[in-house]
């Protein structure tokens, strides 16, 4: 039970955050408020995973039939919906590019997505940065020169954020683009990594991501060539383990690729079965 006294109002919301975070795990876990043990002596993380284990990843293509392409991803408890329109007529004259398609990304976070409810303005700097990161990633992967003077819209909606929202968004965007039939050089597969006590961790959840004990690395690769298209790291901890973290995260990307590709094939088979009635 969490206790609140009337005198210290500010503590209330912090503890409410805790209450909400508790409810994200199966089985209540109690921990001291000052320090969370990210990796226990048996090698288990706060959610019971091993250091190099990816969270359960499930995908669904075309959840929204009205869009050109769409995909829904659940990576652990992080849930993202991606919707793609295009290529289509460019809406703003200023954005028309004579030799290629213009990629437009909007990154939205539902007010109820985090442990603590928070409504973010559309001009929130962090959201605009994330949208830009996604746009730049796909600018180099989508074969935009095939569709000059048109526009491709990628709308990302984070419905629940339990860590790794950016990577889940990139994975969802990839699937939605594939679903829309937009030509791409390869899948873009993203994953996060961290490091605790010299041990690299794969696919950070929210508690790990917000902890000061580990850096937070997001990387996205093109599986066929292994090329890195996105790399972001924030760190409050001095770490010599960068290469180890990066390699583990890249390995995670390949695991993600296997799941994404498999769900695309399943979806294609289903669609083909439905369409060939004759």
């Amino acid at each position: 039970m969490t206790t609140v006294t009337t005198a210290v109002g500010g503590v209330a919301s912090f503890l409410l955050f805790f209450r909400a975070v508790c409810s994200l795990f199966i089985g209540a876990t109690s921990f001291a408020m000052s320090r969370v043990e990210l990796l226990n002596p048996e090698g288990l993380r706060v959610d019971g995973r091993r250091a190099n284990e990816l969270r359960k990843l499930s995908c669904k293509l075309s959840p929204l039939q009205h869009a050109d392409g769409s995909a829904y991803i659940e990576q652990g408890n992080t849930k993202v919906l991606a919707v793609v329109y295009g290529p289509r007529e460019t809406r703003h004259r200023a954005q028309v590019m004579h030799d290629r398609a213009y990629i437009n990304v909007e990154y939205l976070v539902a007010p109820f997505s985090a442990g603590e409810r928070k409504k973010r303005s559309k001009n929130d700097k962090r959201l605009l940065e994330l949208a830009l990161a996604v746009k730049q990633t796909f600018d180099s992967v989508v074969m935009t020169t095939l569709h000059p003077r048109s526009q491709i819209d990628i709308y990302l909606q984070v419905l629940q954020d339990d860590g790794g929202a950016l990577q889940a968004s990139i994975n969802a965007a990839t699937l939605a683009l594939v679903d829309a039939g937009v030509p791409m050089v390869d899948y873009v597969c993203a994953c996060t990594g961290g490091c605790v006590d010299s041990q690299a961790l794969l696919d950070l959840n929210h508690i790990e991501e917000s902890s000061a004990e580990t850096p937070d690395l997001t990387v996205a690769i093109l599986p066929r060539s292994g090329k890195v298209t996105l790399l972001q790291m924030t760190s409050r901890v001095h770490s010599d383990q960068f290469e180890q973290m990066l390699n583990l995260a890249m390995e995670g990307c390949r695991q993600v690729h296997a799941v994404l590709d498999s769900s695309v094939r399943d979806s294609m088979q289903q669609l083909a079965d439905q369409m060939t009635h004759r």
Binding site: L108, P111, Y155
Partner: peptide
């Protein structure tokens, strides 16, 4: 109460 129309519903809902 807060209602938000997602741009996935219509291109006109982009930005502001």
């Amino acid at each position: 109460v807060s209602v938000e129309c997602s741009p996935s519903a219509s291109q006109r809902f982009e930005g502001r």
